[in-house]
Simulated scan of single mutants.
Amino acid sequence: MIIRKYNITLKPVEEEDAEFIIKLRTDDKKSRFISKTNDDIELQKGWIRSYKKREAVKEEFYFIATDENGERFATYRVYNFEDDICEIGSWVSKPNYNNAVNSIKVDIIMKEFVFETLQFEQLKFEVNKKNTSVIKYHKLFTPDIVNETTENYFFVLHKENFEKKRKQIFRNIK
């Protein structure tokens, strides 16, 4: 499934994306607030092969975002499907990418995908407490903090809150 919206293309991750994913997830600046990733490209390819089985039965989706110039710049994943809720994560943008608005567009596209295409009523995600800019951004959609640890906040965003805030937020980033 390829998604094209707002001058962004989201294509499903393939094995040939392994090196790109490793570079994003092991970058010193980008990896500060995400789970650690092994830098072994062959291990990443193996993970992608197992992921493709979950994708085939629509249990998980993992995308590479490409901008209007054809530049790959981000990843994003939807997983842990349960009843009316799923989880989003692996939202990582390329270091020094010069169009931060495109990263926000990717998040909006993914939330639209979760709520409109997959028909979930809620989505959950976690954010490291030190990642204050991402927390501030997510709070624009008025999610609930449902749990926290010393390191992370755990959020749930309801479809109705997303729908109320999406147009306003999107209008401000264009």
Rank of each mutant, 00 (worst) to 15 (best):
R4K: 14
K5V: 06
K5Y: 05
K5S: 11
Y6A: 07
N7I: 07
I8T: 10
I8Q: 07
I8R: 06
T9L: 08
L10P: 06
K11R: 13
K11A: 10
P12M: 09
P12Q: 10
E14Y: 03
E14K: 13
E16H: 10
E16K: 13
E16I: 11
D17Q: 06
D17K: 04
D17E: 05
D17L: 02
D17S: 07
F20I: 06
I21P: 02
I21C: 05
I21S: 02
I22V: 11
I22E: 06
I22W: 06
L24E: 06
R25W: 10
R25K: 12
K30R: 13
K30Y: 05
S31G: 04
R32P: 03
R32W: 03
R32I: 15
F33K: 05
I34C: 03
I34H: 03
S35C: 09
S35T: 11
S35L: 13
T37D: 09
D39T: 01
D39Y: 05
D40C: 07
D40T: 02
I41M: 04
E42N: 14
L43Y: 01
L43R: 10
Q44E: 15
K45S: 00
G46L: 08
W47K: 04
I48F: 06
R49Y: 01
R49D: 01
R49Q: 01
R49E: 03
S50N: 14
Y51L: 03
Y51T: 01
K52L: 15
K52A: 14
R54G: 07
R54I: 04
A56I: 01
A56D: 14
V57P: 00
K58R: 14
E59C: 09
E59D: 14
E60C: 04
F61P: 00
F61T: 00
F63W: 12
F63M: 02
I64M: 02
I64P: 00
G70M: 02
G70D: 05
F73E: 04
F73T: 04
A74R: 06
A74S: 15
A74F: 07
T75N: 09
T75V: 06
T75K: 02
Y76H: 12
R77D: 04
Y79L: 12
Y79N: 13
N80E: 12
N80I: 06
N80M: 10
E82S: 13
D83I: 11
D84Q: 15
I85W: 09
I85R: 15
C86R: 14
E87D: 12
E87S: 15
